[in-house]
Write a protein that binds this DNA or RNA. Structure first.
Lengths: 147, 147
DNA sequence: GTCTGTCGTAACAGTAAGCGTTACGACAGG
DNA sequence: CCTGTCGTAACGCTTACTGTTACGACAGAC
């Protein structure tokens, strides 16, 4: 599986915006978030654009522009983020249709589809059990670096 | 997530070999499996090679060569197959190390690592609950095509 | 000993996704 | 009008997987 860092990066951005706002700032810029994540501001803007479509963040343009949370961190779960940034299913079927004249080729896809549905359902329950509020508190609980 | 069909294809191959052996044949050829899965025999050989490393199948060379199960279908779970063909973790960390001088950049990776470990543990339990014996019986339970 | 069929594996092209970067127009407040 | 930021297109790079061709290795049949 080509492991994906999109969920990690999205959680990073949301936690960063949430903390920044708690420090009294109105909006966060993609540049500030990108500096923390050590990546390019355009990458952040693209990702936050997907979160905006999902109703998790809002953006303001013009002077003093930037990003803000559309919902409280405590009401956003990793499932919300996952659905916003990961379109496809966890496991895929064959690229080409198996031989329908073969018993296995004919029955394998319905069989695996049911199994995968159960597994994805469980994954979604797990993700739904973690709020971004918890992510941020875990982040802040990390041991500080020595001075 | 770039959904992956490797687990599906590996389950297909194992179910095919298992059924073929129950029909009285000694070994299955990569060509026969490939025809059922509608792909190339080399793709099957590569995949079965990984399953052989994991001790799930055996191969014989020379004349009358081919593949056979090293364990009963009932003792092989999707977790065995998953571990054999999917090396990486489900979710990845940032490609580049976040800014360790930033509170979020410093704490995000430990926080997400713990969360991901819990999720993968749950996924593994789900996969471990499905044997290839069940997969094959589900395959055979699929409605037949009209004649 | 030769023939045959299959595995084992290297090599390469094609496809797809994601990331990083540059560029530039759109927007809104000062 | 100027400035800072978003929104988005465009492109190259990397990685992973698939599909294909090719060819040596092997072991049984004869």
């Amino acid at each position: 599986m080509s492991a994906n860092s999109r969920l990690t990066l999205a959680a990073h951005a949301l936690a960063w915006i949430g903390l920044y706002q708690r420090q009294g700032h109105e909006v966060a810029t993609s540049e500030g978030i990108a500096a923390s994540a050590n990546t390019n501001p355009v990458v952040i803007r693209r990702l936050l654009g997907e979160l905006r479509k999902a109703g998790l963040v809002e953006s303001r343009r013009g002077a003093g522009a930037g990003w803000s949370l559309a919902r409280e961190l405590g009401s956003i779960t990793l499932l919300d983020v996952y659905e916003a940034v990961e379109p496809g299913p966890l496991f895929a079927m064959h690229r080409t249709t198996p031989d329908q004249g073969c018993v296995v080729g004919h029955g394998i896809q319905p069989a695996m589809r049911d199994i995968y549905q159960d597994i994805e359902e469980t994954l979604r329950r797990e993700l739904a059990g973690v709020t971004l509020e918890k992510v941020l508190s875990d982040v802040l609980a990390a041991p500080r670096q020595a001075l």
